[in-house]
Design a protein around this nucleic acid. Sequence first.
DNA 1: GCGATCACG
DNA 2: GACGTACGTGATCGCA
Length: 929
Amino acid sequence: MATAPVTKDSHLYLVDASAYIFRAFHALPPLTRASDGLPIGAVSGFCNMLFKLLEELKGPDRPTHFACIFDASSHTFRNDMYDQYKANRSEPPEELRPQFPLVRRASIAFAAHALELEGYEADDLIATYARQAEAKGARVTIVSSDKDLMQLVSERVVMLDTMKNKTLGIEEVFEKFGVGPERVVDVQSLAGDSVDNVPGAPGIGIKTAAQLINEYGDVETLLERAGEIKQPKRRESLIENAEQVRLSKQLVLLKDDVPVELPLEELAVADPDPEVLIAFLEEMEFRTITRRVRESMEMEGAIEAAPPAEEPIDRTQYETVRDFERLEEWVARAMAQGYVAVDTETDSLDSVAANLVGVSLALAPGEACYIPLAHVDPNAAGDGDMFGADPPRQIRMKDAMRALKPMLEDASVLKIGQNIKYDDSVFATQGIRVAPIDDTMLLSYVLNAGKHSHGMDTLSERYLGHSPIPFKEVAGTGKQQVSFDRVALDKATEYAAEDADVTLRLWQTFKPKLHTEQVTTVYETLERPLVPVLAQMEREGIKVDRDQLSRLSADFSQRMAALEAEAEEQAGRAFNIGSPKQLGEILFDEMGLPGGKKTKTGAWVTDADVLEGLAAEGHPLPRTIVDWRTLSKLRSTYTEALQAAINKKTGRVHTSYAMAVAQTGRLSSSDPNLQNIPVRTEEGRKIRQAFIADEGNVLVSADYSQIELRILAHMADIPALKEAFLNGLDIHAMTASEMFGVPIEGMDPMVRRQAKAINFGIIYGISGFGLARQLGIPQGEAAEYIKTYFKRFPGIRAYMDETKDFAKGTGYVKTAFGRKIHLEAIKSKGPAKAFAERQAINAPIQGSAADVIKRAMIRMPDALAKAGLTARMLLQVHDELVFECPENEAETLIKVAQDTMQGAALPALNLSVPLVVDARAAKNWAEAH
DNA sequence: GCGATCACG
DNA sequence: GACGTACGTGATCGCA
């Protein structure tokens, strides 16, 4: 035990030990000491937690001061105020009682103070120390999930739920109580608490209490003005129970000035005495943690002597688990440790079509195994030919799932994956809901978006200096490639267990950086909770009308053939109409048409812009080519590909959403991409018509109106734009009216179109050149427009300059919700810099919009369930959500979807403009949109 | 495997 | 004064 001053760089951890013991006892498996059957489950959990916090936390989250706080006895000053306080608590169970003193001993063995004070609850000591540390500018982490402690949360004080591995800050408190931490006491004293037997005001729950407090400020004011309340029930309950509410407030308000015996400074973290600690752990017969403490102590000695050497990756050390008993041992170790890296191997990249082939686990660097489940004889000839095939001995799928399910679903065991959405879907086919989770891909995404990609190989090479075995090396390449179930077990183990090992090591690398980089909230509120939501959407899929697509395909083919013949005639010779190279030669070399540009590879540019230009000059061939290309695109990318994408089992099309590809925080969709289904042309919409609801159902499409411009109006604080949105004006018409001085009524559509292009240009980081090209006007004219725009909306230029300066200073930009997008090129010179500057302007806007819809999607499943709907969310297209529901639910669904989407920024962000969502139901997507 | 093209927000 | 320019994606094709 040591002394050290508490400063703004200190980080105090206060463990709510008494509460932990109860929770661990109920949440963890009932472990007993092998030699004498002494129950020690809670002690084990407690030791693991202390070890994790004291030995494994590195970086700025590492505690500098630390204490375990206990309840002294059951009688406190609150019982003197109210004899019924916590009177409904029953005695602790028989198996738990002997564990109380052991947990105190465990604290001391870890060189942590075990503190308590007669007459006070642990919560009061925690409050006292937390306030003292906070006053000195230190950060405080309260290790507890007890809502009674939430009143202490602040900018510097967070709570940590070690079992769910979840940090609770101001936003989470707000979500639970509907008020900030400083008003939690008021809400609690009104709502009461049946667990602690705090009476409150009968008939008033948390929701109502929050509403009242938000309106009146605090309990005293509320009680004084209770007569003003309109609802008779509430009014009477408050008037009748005023004294009871005042008493409740005294009960829930934590005492933050108790006479603590030890000064804060003496809670400094000290190195445990290895002999004492190991002796205690051995006495408890904790094998895994004893070994890990030993390793950690030895390593610390080594660290002082030599630079920290990464444990090298040795694939030969991995275990192939082929016996049920061994599997049970791995599962038990994962349960005891509280976290485990998990990876699934399957026979397909498509998570919906994939069959589970094996599972790998990793508990510590180098400590990993592979559990083969559906491997076949690698020498068997093929799917249909199993003669003489001799599958290797492996655990039966059903048995393995029985062993793994409790661990994968256990709230106290964190499952760590790389792109765990995939594994989540694979386990879902086995009836397993994996939770809680962490995802190294998403950790990297919130930490490093813009710096590099987030696939496992990239991350491993970059952060571990190690290249994992390429998949090709175990499964072969090209025609010889086999699915993973045909890979021999020794090779499969090296590959699969290494993936879990690497994932675990990456997690240890990334997780502590969340706080230093201030992206914990983004990770915990925007990315991690979206994983199961997207996995579910991918599994739902959407129905498409195969016959309709097939008819369209035939129609397009026919028309393409006609256009092809026409093109040859117009060109004067046969050529490959699909070859831009040949086309360029014909147009510019042979026919000698003007206006030819070259690409950087020296080929003629023949894109739609160029061809439209030529067509306008009266040449027939370019128009034919444009028409042919349109049909060719629709046919090959949509009508043909979509038929091929229909899943054989479900009869529906299942896209895959990439969470860590787009730099700005957007999702992307692939295999097939359902975010670029045609809509802008009449021909294209016929394809959209082929996306249909199942019988008796309808599709509902709900999309944000102008979300990016609204976010710009808010973030750049442009009064004229905000005003327009508040008044529900046509924003492009209003822009045109401002800029060109024309009335909105009876406006020339061309003028509005120009204003619309300028509005988009602003969001994209406008340039005169770009706007000129978009509008087909001279560059000088475009530059004039931009000048006028900046004059009319002066805040825009200031916002752009501030954003660019921020990016230049920090190397990144942020969305309104704190997501970081790194733009290292902003510090360079030349075109790269100009490009980065435009990204700097666009990324916060596009990214904030992406954050908003993610928040809506995360809340949607609960919102639907609460409204009693069976509706399913199927697709996301950046600012649009597509649902499917029975016809009779459509009306309610539209309301729920609109409410959830329109309120999605709250409470984290109170936008100064309304978010508006349009929604419609129809039999197909074209009509619903 | 890459560039050109074009579908979407 | 010159330079290179709208932001973010994915799929398909031709061609090296």
